[in-house]
């Protein structure tokens, strides 16, 4: 079943067309890779899906519902969560509070009920605490719950961003270069982690990644972007041997450069 669909999505920044006529049909449960050289327009596509940038043309459809132009926080509530290429944690909040914040969108209690600690709120807050701790445990971060997010090492920050995204209870998870800055060992562990959470949380994943070994090993399908144009799509094997893709990557013929 089609879960997330992008139809003829185009984004122009002034004279620059960052994304042009982009189409994608993410099936439920799929893990699709989005690759392409720097400046190809990958992050822009994430920003268009979440309406952080308004699309110039085209439609974004989630589970049959047109979400084009819907407010970003509503889209998150509808079930799309993301991480950021240049980590955007709440640096001065603890790891636990980062995750707890992402549960806020489902809070039912009113402000006054929260301020005066009424039973309804206390119950919800307790549930948030438990779920947040569980998420931190799932990602192996429980030791760091009281550390300020900004003070954590890089690799842990990336993981914390993933757990924060999971806290919004998404159907679709958008990961923007989660392996950036990781060594091969960490990248391997990350691949295992992505596979595990996908199963555990019933996720459909769209993954932007530069590390080809990661993309080739875990993605079921790959879409290649260059200068905003989709130049190839297919199975990892097909992409690997696609001459156009190889030229796009500096023409070196080495995807693993």
């Amino acid at each position: 079943m089609s879960l997330l669909k992008l139809e003829h999505v185009t984004k122009r920044f002034g004279g620059l067309t960052a994304v042009s006529d982009f189409n994608l049909d993410l099936q439920e449960g799929e893990l699709v890779g989005l690759i392409g050289p720097n400046g190809a327009g990958k992050t822009t596509i994430f920003n268009l899906i979440t309406n952080t940038y308004l699309v110039s043309e085209g439609k974004v459809i989630l589970g049959g519902k047109d979400i084009t132009g819907m407010k970003t926080d509503r889209i998150t509530a509808e079930g799309i969560a993301r991480t950021f290429q240049n980590i955007r944690l709440f640096g001065e909040l603890t790891a636990l509070d980062n995750v707890r914040t992402a549960f806020h969108l489902r809070l039912k209690s009113s402000v006054l009920s929260a301020v005066f600690g009424l039973p309804g709120y206390r119950k919800e807050e307790k549930e948030i605490d438990d779920k947040a701790m569980l998420l931190l445990k799932t990602l192996g971060l429980e030791k760091y719950k009281d550390d300020l997010a900004g003070s954590l090492p890089y690799g842990l920050q990336r993981k914390l961003e993933i757990s924060r995204a999971l806290a919004t209870n998404p159907k679709v998870l958008l990961l923007d270069e989660p392996a950036a800055g990781m060594n091969p060992e960490e990248t391997l562990a990350l691949a295992a982690l992505i596979m595990r959470i996908r199963k555990e949380f019933n996720l459909t994943v769209l993954l932007i990644e530069h590390d080809m070994s990661l993309v080739m090993s875990i993605c079921e399908r790959i879409v290649v972007l260059d200068h905003g144009v989709t130049i190839a799509r297919g199975l990892p094997k097909e992409i690997q041997n696609n001459p156009e893709v190889i030229t796009a990557y500096l023409g070196t013929g080495d995807l693993y450069a």
Binding site: K71, T72, D73, T76, R88, L105, A167, T168
Partner: peptide, 8 residues
């Protein structure tokens, strides 16, 4: 930006 993306 992150707050809004997390549903705030």
């Amino acid at each position: 930006v992150a707050a809004e993306a997390m549903g705030v």
